[in-house]
Design a protein around this nucleic acid. Structure first.
Lengths: 161, 161
DNA sequence: TTTTATGCAAAGCATTTGCATTATT
DNA sequence: AATAATGCAAATGCTTTGCATAAAA
């Protein structure tokens, strides 16, 4: 079976780009950190661990290229840095995000929850949808658990008093 | 009846901020361009027309303040600039956007389309939703009409040939 | 040998900050 | 008088670009 990196190589070639060592190193970092949402700087530092000679500009250029080819998605959570996220293979749409306003964690929702909503928008607004971005801001399950714990110990203190 | 600007003034006062002439001028620009999605620079230029002495930093500071107080929403369509959008009064949630990839126009959807989706997310992901961002990328109704027109004239040319 | 990609440093932008001045309470 | 807000210029931080060098087709 063909590896993910080989398929990406073919995608690059089919647009007459090369998979140079620097590009490969960058893609590998993205593959190894698929569940994260790395900034260009993050990617740069991780790539540098194995390929110390790489330059930040090359990482930026590679990420831009991968974005153009829709191999990665460029996202922005409003903190002033772009983040890069490998697309699921064959995914027509961007996945969704859950951003925790307590701890900053970003979780992903791979399921497409917008099927019906998109039907409505295309019909009622006469808008031909090509892609979407959906992010929820709120409290993640981990922070909710933390608050409950804190409340528990608060009660314990009250009892002790 | 109380005006929108007076209500905003009260909101500022209730957090012990003043509605200075510069802040008022900024808010007025936002009110007069409610359907647009102005960048800080856009707002600055418009404010300057009536209050030429204002500084860009003040506009930034005012927009930040209004964002904190949830009077405006700060949005980012991925073009490297933040845009500011007056919230509908009493709106619990952010409205949605339709971004045209042809002409760049941004239309708004005031209706909340995400009721059901949010129920699912809160239940299945155990995530307490506080707000959301939903943007569709695609072709707006105006550009779709343009393409049809172009196709019509293309047929006409073929017939002429 | 012609094109494409890289690394570095410099440049570009949007945004923020320091600070002296001005307005407001 | 004390606090808060402003304007300007300088600083910051992310990202892009110019250009000489190196690698690939």
């Amino acid at each position: 079976m063909e590896s993910r990196i080989e398929r990406i190589k073919k995608l690059l070639h089919s647009s007459s780009y090369k998979l140079t060592p620097q590009r490969e190193a960058t893609v590998r970092v993205l593959l190894e950190n698929e569940e994260d949402h790395l900034s260009a700087e993050d990617v740069y530092l991780l790539v540098k661990e194995k390929s110390p000679e790489i330059g930040l500009a090359t990482v930026y250029r590679t990420l831009e290229l991968l974005t153009e080819l829709k191999i990665v998605d460029k996202i922005n959570f409003g903190d002033g840095v772009s983040r890069y996220d490998l697309r699921q293979e064959g995914a027509a749409h961007f996945h969704h995000h859950l951003v925790c306003i307590e701890c900053g964690a970003v979780d992903e929702i791979q399921e497409d929850l917008l099927g019906e909503v998109e039907t409505v928008v295309e019909r009622d607004w006469n808008f031909k949808i090509k892609d979407h971005r959906l992010t929820f801001h709120g409290i993640c399950h981990r922070c909710q658990a933390k608050v409950e714990k804190a409340e528990d110990s608060q009660s314990a203190i009250n009892i002790t008093l």
